[in-house]
Design a protein around this nucleic acid. Sequence first.
DNA 1: GTCTAATTGAGAAATATTTTCATTAAAGTT
DNA 2: AACTTTAATGAAAATATTTCTCAATTAGAC
Lengths: 150, 150
Amino acid sequence: MINNASKAAQEELKRKGYKLTGPRIAIINYLAESQEHPDMQQIFAGIRAEYPGIGMATVYRTLGLLLELDILRAITVNKNQLLYELKKPDDHHHHLVCTGCSQIIEFGSCSFKHISSEIETVTRYSIEDHTLEAYGLCPQCQGDFQVERG
Amino acid sequence: MINNASKAAQEELKRKGYKLTGPRIAIINYLAESQEHPDMQQIFAGIRAEYPGIGMATVYRTLGLLLELDILRAITVNKNQLLYELKKPDDHHHHLVCTGCSQIIEFGSCSFKHISSEIETVTRYSIEDHTLEAYGLCPQCQGDFQVERG
DNA sequence: GTCTAATTGAGAAATATTTTCATTAAAGTT
DNA sequence: AACTTTAATGAAAATATTTCTCAATTAGAC
Ligand SMILES: [Zn+2]
Ligand SMILES: [Zn+2]
Ligand SMILES: [Zn+2]
Ligand SMILES: [Zn+2]
């Protein structure tokens, strides 16, 4: 139980009747510890460090399972690169992505909840979740842009 | 010039010094006409209907170019399926995705602009764009869910 | 029409993902 | 703790996706 997020994810797996195996625990722990938003390759490489024998297929299968069980979230910030993050209890945040250097920071302000019920009324959907990604230039890249133009 | 969105995209290509070729026009027209949010396979198949000789590589290259030039937007609504839509002048909308049947509808209400400058102040990023996807059940799937439970 | 460089299509190559199946191991039962 | 059952795993093969290479084509400039 590395931390709370790992604990919650492991309990959820058990609760839904899945076995808590070594590979799964290693993957969950890696995700729970990760401060960035790793992609498939980073996850695979990172886990091999502490679980050398793990197979690629197991990582794919486990990420798929965690997504399906709504324990994991996938975000796309560039055209074809899926990034992952474990859903943490009581954490709601969104992403601000620099179009210059691809750095990602998170922000907590969320205005969607204010219009959510209005959208539910208009569309007749029942809304359960949402993701929001904002794009722009980080302070560093704004500076670089000035320099480029001379 | 199928419609306004196609016209705008073609002009933008020219303006930035790219050649307006048959394949590119066919791809842009397909995207401009498309009411749904097609993925790569649909785009390729759809374009072959009116431009049979087009190669897969050209479609990949053109989508990449349009993304780079900010004429095209890619969204991810399911784990590993990228969907595309041409950016239309004066159109700002977001997506509401049914987790039951994957149907996507669009909504225009956007609350992000209200907090955008606040986030810019706090983070020192300059924000240029954003995407928002909401997830839930469409009216039909809410009904099916009731039926399933008996 | 001629010229030039960008663009294209076909196929090869490189990557990424899924499937198959014999083996392993988690979790429940005695 | 040994026994049993069945899900889960790893390795390799099979698929699928994306990029690259290069000779041939073609848009746009003159
Ligand atoms: Zn995040
Ligand atoms: Zn939010
Ligand atoms: Zn849309
Ligand atoms: Zn918006």
